[in-house]
Design a protein around this nucleic acid. Structure first.
Length: 604
RNA sequence: GGAGUCGUAGUUCAGUUGGUUAGAACGCCGGCCUGUCACGUCGGAGGUCGCGGGUUCGAAUCCCGUCGGCUCCGCCA
């Protein structure tokens, strides 16, 4: 039989009672975390979001409540009224915040029962949790775990701090529409059919990009929004189809102003976890970051292990794979693993397999142990190998890992190897936060498959002032190959190897915007049909403006040192973009389809 | 689109030359217990070995397909 709550009110939460509460009568409500039954004496660990309090039920003092406690099972919801008492010295529990006291129940109400849970919230023997699909199906149970509760509360505090800070800095929070129009470039859109306009579709925003620029044109001056964004692309450990960005845009802003607002924001947020970020963040151009770390988001917690160019050294040799890579305009580069001479054959094989994922054909190595060993010894000879190692900067006891090929895969593989080796060899210090800016991203990226240039950031990114003549020559003068050299006023703040935001100064001049569209192979008519409203807006006095958009989940992942984006969202989707709890996406009623003028052609 | 990996009681896992009745721990149910807090103790129930097909006298185990979770590459302006 269940009891009614009636007018009974909680006086405390389960995490708050302390020695100074001893002697008072309290009412607690929560979930039964554990029950320990000694016949005439029963203990219940009562849990709510704040913690756990031990409740004691004694057959002598409160026979009725004690009898009722026999019916109680795990995760039952109960209310307990009783007296707070001090525990004997020997009976205290240092693991509980409330462990110096306990509540002697006078009355117990069973507010609700519970089926046996499909999985144990916390495993008693190991910290092995139930499989993730099961936990996702019963996400509301998984969320009862104190760790996830703490994560969501930090998320709340971060969002609250962000709103405070942005307000202090004079920004206005403005909401923009969720039902907008599909834009062909960029990520795949989630689309929504229109019932009222047969055959037409809305798209969900990948970001409020154009709307925030329009807010600048509207004279709002400083805009922000904590905005949900939608991208129909394949997922990763740090990517979900819908995620949240702090979207920011400001008028008349210089690069330095945006850097400083952003750094101030991160500093404030990191204070929530007691971390003082070193300000200002060091800045590196994209070119320098790629050259030195093989990544546009280098993890600067890892000391050194920068990419070393070995091309010059190897040009002289007659080792065919390297000579031909160099002849084809490629590179040979390596990284030095301090103390890596001890790497086993198997470890090196593993690293080779790892490197191959990034499009290089092999991974050569040199180990400077008691004697020098190398996969290149036969091909190059002892002397060349020794010289190579010294060019790379390796010393006694180190190893050098070497890859060859086109510039991009070489950087990608070594950049990834740097992180992987550091992770495996435990070269990443704990509780260190290493921020930086990566700046001057290229404007365009050449795609071999369809022989054209694509905007690397988005087509509203402003080129560097000094590179504007290049754009003009490329577009008006037909020197298309110059597009690859064009640099932009785009910037990403990176902390611990995680790209935490992305932003740029935008194009505010219509002549420049037209040239960029043209460079992307868009005719005037195409540009008009896609972005006509925006090109119109640019004609009416657009202030210089720029902004940035930190990813809230990424930020929380760094704050909480978790690798899994699902740890920082309440209701995430699986790697195949489904929701196992609500079983979405799902089919819809044929009537709905008909109303929307849709027909399923092939269900497979 | 591609690759790797996992899928066995409610849960986490073990289970190899293919062979009797598929095990352990936790959880669950019942008994006992007045100071436990991962309580203890005695007893009990609980299995479509993800699903489908094949090979075989015989399949959790071998083969093919398929579904699902996770991770990575491509993708993510």
């Amino acid at each position: 039989m269940l009891d009614n709550l009636g007018n009974l009110q909680r006086t405390h939460s389960c995490g708050t009672l302390r020695v100074h509460d001893v002697g008072t009568t309290v009412t607690l409500m929560g979930w039964v975390s554990r029950r320990r039954d000694f016949g005439e004496l029963t203990f219940i660990d009562l849990r709510d979001r704040d913690g756990i309090t031990q409740v004691v039920l004694n057959s002598e003092d409160a026979p009725e409540a004690h009898a009722k406690a026999k019916e109680v099972r795990g995760e039952y919801v109960i209310a307990v009224t009783g007296e707070v008492t001090l525990r004997d010295e020997s009976q205290r529990n240092a693991k509980l915040e409330t462990g110096e006291v306990e509540v002697h129940a006078r009355e117990l109400l069973i507010l609700n029962d519970a089926r046996t849970l499909p999985f144990q919230l916390e495993s008693a023997t190991t910290d092995a949790l139930a499989s993730e699909d099961l936990r996702l199906k019963y996400r509301y149970l998984d969320l009862r775990r104190p760790q996830l509760q703490a994560n969501l509360r930090l998320r709340h505090r971060v969002l609250r701090e962000i709103r405070r800070y942005m307000d202090e800095q004079g920004f206005t929070e403005i909401e923009t529409p969720i039902l907008i129009k599909s834009t062909p470039e960029g990520a795949r859109d989630y689309i929504v059919p229109s019932r009222v306009q047969p055959g037409k579709f809305f798209a969900l925003p990948q970001s409020p990009q154009l709307f925030k620029q329009l807010c600048m044109i509207a004279g709002m001056d400083k805009y922000f929004q904590i905005a949900r964004c939608f991208r129909d692309e394949d997922l990763r450990a740090d990517r979900q189809p819908e995620f949240t960005q702090l979207d920011v845009e400001m008028s008349f802003a210089t690069l330095d102003q945006i850097y400083s607002v952003t750094e101030g924001l991160f500093a404030r947020v990191f204070k929530l976890i007691g971390v003082e970020l070193p300000l200002p963040f060091p800045r590196f151009s994209f070119a320098e970051a790629m050259r030195r770390w093989g990544s546009d988001k280098p993890d600067l917690r890892i000391e050194g292990m920068e990419l070393q160019d070995l091309s010059v050294e190897l040009q002289q040799t007659n080792f065919a794979p390297y000579v031909s890579a160099l002849a084809a305009g490629g590179e040979v580069k390596g990284i030095v693993v301090r103390g890596g001479a001890g790497l086993s054959r198997k470890a090196l094989d593993d690293l080779q397999e790892f490197a191959k994922r990034y499009g290089v054909t092999g991974l050569a190595w040199i180990k400077l142990g008691d004697e020098t060993t190398s996969s290149l010894l036969k091909a190059l000879g002892e002397e060349s190998v020794a010289r190579l190692a010294s060019t790379a900067g390796a010393q006694e006891g180190d190893a050098v890992l070497i890859v060859a090929g086109k510039t991009k895969p070489v950087a990608a593989s070594l950049g990834a190897l740097r992180n992987e080796v550091a992770r495996r060899e435990k070269l990443i210090p704990a509780n260190v936060y290493a921020p930086l800016w990566v700046t001057e991203f290229p404007m365009f990226e050449y795609h071999e498959d369809d022989d054209r240039y694509y905007a690397m950031h988005h087509p509203f990114t402003s080129p560097l002032d000094e590179d504007l003549p290049l754009l003009e020559r490329a577009v008006e003068g037909g020197e298309t190959e110059l597009l690859g050299r064009l640099r932009t006023k785009a910037y990403d703040p990176v902390i611990n190897g995680v790209e935490l935001a992305s932003g740029s100064i935008r194009i505010h001049r219509r002549d420049v915007q037209r040239m960029v569209f043209k460079a992307l192979g868009m005719t005037t008519e195409e540009a008009r049909s896609r972005f006509g409203f925006f090109l119109d807006a640019l004609e009416f006095g657009t202030p210089p403006h720029g902004g940035i958009a930190p990813g809230i989940e990424r930020l929380l992942m760094v704050l909480l040192s978790t690798e899994n984006i699902r740890d920082v969202m309440a209701f995430p989707k699986t790697a195949s973009a489904t929701d196992l709890m609500i079983d979405a996406p799902g089919e819809v009623d044929p009537k709905q389809l008909e109303e929307l003028h849709l027909k399923i052609v092939d269900k497979k």
